[in-house]
Design a protein around this nucleic acid. Sequence first.
RNA 1: CGAGGCGUGGCUCAGUUUGGUAGAGCGCCACGUUCGGGACGUGGAAGUCGCAGGUUCAAAUCCUGUCGCCUCGACCA
Length: 479
Amino acid sequence: MAKEKKLVEAITSMSEDFAQWYTDVVRKAELVEYSGVRGCMIYRPYGYAIWENIQRELDARFKATGVENVYMPMFIPESLLQREKDHVEGFAPEVAWVTHGGYEELQERLCVRPTSETLFCDLYSKIVQSYRDLPKNYNQWCSVVRWEKTTRPFLRSAEFLWQEGHTAHATAEEAEERTILMLNIYANFCEDFLAIPVVKGQKTEKEKFAGAKSTYTIEALMHDGKALQSGTSHNFGDGFAQAFGIQYSDANNELKYVHQTSWGMSTRIIGAIIMVHGDDSGLKLPPRVAPTQVTVIPIAQRKEGVMEAAGALNDRLVAAGIRAKFDDSDKSPGWKFSEQEMRGIPLRVEIGPRDIENGQCVLVRRDTGEKIETPLEGIEETVKALLEQIQADMLAAARAHLESHISDAVTYDEFRDAVENKPGFIRAMWCGDEACELKIKEDTTATSRCMPFEQESISDVCVCCGRPAKKLVYWGKAY
RNA sequence: CGAGGCGUGGCUCAGUUUGGUAGAGCGCCACGUUCGGGACGUGGAAGUCGCAGGUUCAAAUCCUGUCGCCUCGACCA
């Protein structure tokens, strides 16, 4: 838990009440507002701008690997949803249904998409005939609806924004390759762009996606030591292809089923940004994702020349391609400082009479609070370099937090002790039996987060039952 | 879906136990003085007390129903 000096009274401190802290930050930073419908949130401009930056960057990374965007209907006929058995069973409990059009009852009710596998499958069954039609690498940006019992802004809402990629391939190998490729795109995106280090691995049978052959995940660690699944990539094998009849003729004119993948990242990732980087003063955004990177704040703004100098400084930063904003409101400087901090704007530039006289300004880092007096000459380059430094330092800080919150457990007593006293990931061996996962969850509320790709053996036996161990698993309490 | 909490100006809440003229702080608007960590003064606007019934001379307050929100659990991105 962070112990930085608290600068903003309006936000409950993390150590006092982490959940309330989260809610306060979300509200005070003006990311979202609650709507009249349970679990559906309003994205305010600042919150939506963060999502737009995420979209822009991810979209570019997808397209660089040959992905094309499409848009699917938001309604799925019930009969179509029911085509794949495991899939329906997985989603049925949280599906919203449309039963009427105007005053008339529909002859077949329509589900509001909780995810669009069935629609993509239906499409692929129509447009794929030959191996020459493959692969299909489609993605869509949309919202989906899942009638959740309990909701929280970003982390779990009834309607949420996401992208869902759906691909169809000629071979199993190619599908697996795409699945891993996308997982790596997510992981790299989190690290480079959001300064969030993640653990990559495979989900257990119990935790994998409904209908998938295998599910891969990136797991991030929040400030309170709880894990957040931040992106997933699924290999469907040819299960959906069989259920939906997606076949193609190969080069030898033999009829084959396609192999499919799907992968998604949602607005939940904004919750991760908040809980990985935030502190008691509010949000703390990495420069690359920050809608506003710099706030220019005039001091003693009614004094001769101050507003002009501050405005000119802001113009220079904007002209240099920095996302800078000039706070020329008539609030007091202290107020403006707090606003900048609550909103997590990475860098603040103060300029007042004293600075103007000395040909300088004062830079204040949001991540460390450090104040730096800097000459106005070459300020564009100074700020750019500092923003890069902040981005790098934020990743390093988050990585240090992650690494210091991973503990190993060999015995069940050690495991239980770790769940109670060492917030974070617990590495422990597992026999592969779902019964042990269930028992661990029952006893401790911790769940298997993933089987990391880098496997090692820290013990020969399962931490729970003592039978021979098959896999090293990361466990933890999760959102 | 279980357990708890809560709906009163934009926000946070008091007032409900014991029915009797709708309140405070913050915010907002105007003007002035301020300005290097949420400044101050003066004046001003703003509420069918979530909604619907009921009891009563009289309901924010009591009764019934209903809708919604938050937190914690069980389920999920």
